[in-house]
């Protein structure tokens, strides 16, 4: 895995991508630090971190678009997949390399609170909380980008798809507001969800019986849920989509509060997408 990490880090900085990422990231943090803390005369650095979350929309695709897509396109994945290393160490190695570049860049921004600390006392524990949140948040988005990069062999497609996905995640809270909350809509959505999962299973396994079984079990569960407590379908769409609401879970960190549930949420979210990337790579060999 170390070899993969080393190779990825080298390729970030022998091409433009690493430099573009670092430069744009530092430019925006510097800009917001100047506007908020220096010109705005505010000691609140977590506000800066929270207000530059949007930068991930652009920075994450830059960091992740190449990861697997380029290997597939250049057919260098043949080397990796026929070498005696596991798929897990390939994917996790790539993920960690991207996270290392992100964390390394983030480390530069410590200079801003340090500048502020020369002028007075800072709440360091709050700033630390903010940084942990920012790091977890970014790592979760990198995992999404990595996953998308394993799907396609075109870097540009990977970048655009990642940007769009992150944008949807960004807007998801606003989208939830506009969706119907009544029971009927909830039930229809639940059925569609079960059908969607069954379809994915079918395309992954080409086994109509397994897919049909899952759809059947889903529908039975939906009916059973309705009999036991019909109220669970009120606002069901919102409840499901909220699972993907990464931004709303950042609020605690913005206040400098370290609470367990968003930490667990982000780590789970990242792990899930890293795991899906491994499965995706595995699936390619079977298709």
């Amino acid at each position: 895995m170390l070899a993969v990490i080393k190779k990825e880090l080298r390729s970030y900085f022998t091409s433009m991508t690493g430099y573009i990422f670092v430069a744009s990231f530092l430019f925006f943090t510097g800009l917001f630090f100047t506007l908020n803390n220096l010109l705005g005369a505010s000691p609140d650095f977590n506000r800066v971190l929270a207000s530059i979350l949007f930068i991930f929309l652009l920075a994450v695709p830059i960091l992740t678009m190449r990861l697997m897509a380029e290997e597939t396109k250049q057919k260098t994945d043949q080397l990796l997949l026929t070498s005696p290393i596991t798929l897990t160490s390939i994917i996790v190695g790539k993920y960690l390399a991207a996270v290392i570049v992100f964390v390394g860049t983030l480390a530069f921004t410590i200079i801003y609170p340090l500048i502020m600390s020369t002028m007075g006392k800072l709440a360091w524990s709050e700033i630390l909380g903010g940084y942990i949140g920012f790091f977890l948040f970014g790592s979760a988005l990198i995992a999404v980008g990595l996953f998308i990069s394993t799907i396609t062999e075109n870097q540009v497609v990977a970048a655009v798809a990642t940007f769009t996905t992150l944008l949807i995640l960004w807007l998801i809270d606003a989208i939830i507001q506009g969706l119907p909350t009544d029971k009927t809509a909830g039930i229809i959505f639940a059925v569609l969800l079960a059908a969607g999962i069954a379809a994915i299973i079918y395309f992954a396994t080409r086994n109509i019986y397994v897919a049909g079984g899952i759809l059947g079990a889903g529908i039975i569960a939906i009916v059973a849920g309705y009999i036991v407590n019909p109220e669970i379908y009120t606002g069901f769409i919102g409840k499901v989509l909220e699972w993907f609401s990464l931004y709303s879970r950042y609020e605690d960190f913005e206040l400098g509060v370290l609470s367990l549930s968003p930490i667990v949420y982000y780590i789970t979210f990242s792990s899930a997408f890293v795991f899906l990337s491994i499965r995706m790579l595995e699936k390619k060999r079977w298709s």
Binding site: K7, R10, T14, Q74, T76, Q78
Partner: peptide, 10 residues
């Protein structure tokens, strides 16, 4: 393989 799996930037 048919196309040698090489990393051009190395």
């Amino acid at each position: 393989p048919e196309f040698p799996p090489l990393y051009g930037e190395m």
